[in-house]
């Protein structure tokens, strides 16, 4: 997606967001007319940059850029979900609401990941950055109680297929797009540019 304008940047200092640069750009509107030239309405063009906190999930997104997949675990011995493992990463246990323990699941993912279900689409919404067709894979892991949604970037998906995670360690976006999946046995040369196997 080509940037039409220079977008603002943000840092956090002393507990506050410090924006710099321009965060919004307005443009002239234009009339909407029907075939007979009658005024029906107007367009309202503008660009807006939102600021978004990852909060307690920040370690997950930082770790992707380092080739690591993190999950979390409830370690509250009094909780009905004690020792439940969550991938996607949950900051708090959904049952007892205590803070979960962060666990590196890269090795589990490398050894045990399988496609639980999948879909393939040529159609996308606006702002899509993935090459089409997109192949969603929902991945299950041994010892993990949830399933993780992701995208397959090599090969064709099948239910039960063994897959391994790959990570955008060069020029990471610090979003979920830094994590992708490939069939077990995929060669490094086949990976998306900037991606590598987990560490």
């Amino acid at each position: 997606m080509a940037d039409r304008v220079e977008h603002g940047q943000v840092t956090v200092s002393n507990g506050r967001y410090r924006p710099s640069g321009k965060f919004h750009h307005g443009y002239a509107n234009s009339p909407i007319r029907n075939d007979e030239g009658v005024l029906m309405g107007v367009t309202n063009p503008r660009d807006v940059t939102h600021i978004h906190s990852y909060g307690g999930e920040a370690p997950f997104f930082e770790s992707l850029s380092k080739g690591k997949l993190l999950g979390t675990r409830c370690d509250n011995a009094d909780c009905a979900l004690h020792e439940t493992m969550f991938v996607p990463f949950r900051i708090h246990c959904p049952d007892c609401l205590s803070r979960n323990t962060i666990v590196d699941v890269t090795d589990i993912a490398n050894r045990t990941s399988k496609v639980h279900t999948f879909m393939i689409t040529e159609r996308t919404g606006a702002f899509n950055t993935l090459e089409k067709p997109i192949r969603f894979v929902n991945v299950e892991f041994e010892g993990v109680d949830t399933i993780l949604m992701g995208y397959l970037s090599v090969g064709e998906p099948e239910i039960g297929m063994r897959v391994v995670p790959i990570f955008q360690t060069e020029n990471p976006t610090y979003t979920i797009m830094d994590l992708s999946w490939v069939p077990e046995g995929t060669q490094k040369s086949e990976l998306l540019p900037g991606f590598s196997f987990g560490k």
């Binding site: 990852y54 689409t121 159609r123 899509n128 969603f136 979920i176």
Partner: peptide
Amino acid sequence: NHYIASAADKDWETPMGHIYTGYYAVMAQK
């Protein structure tokens, strides 16, 4: 379609295709 897909989890799901139909399609496949 992007706006509808914003009703999925914006950090974990929406960036993948921005297409809500996809979230039902994985269910359809299974």
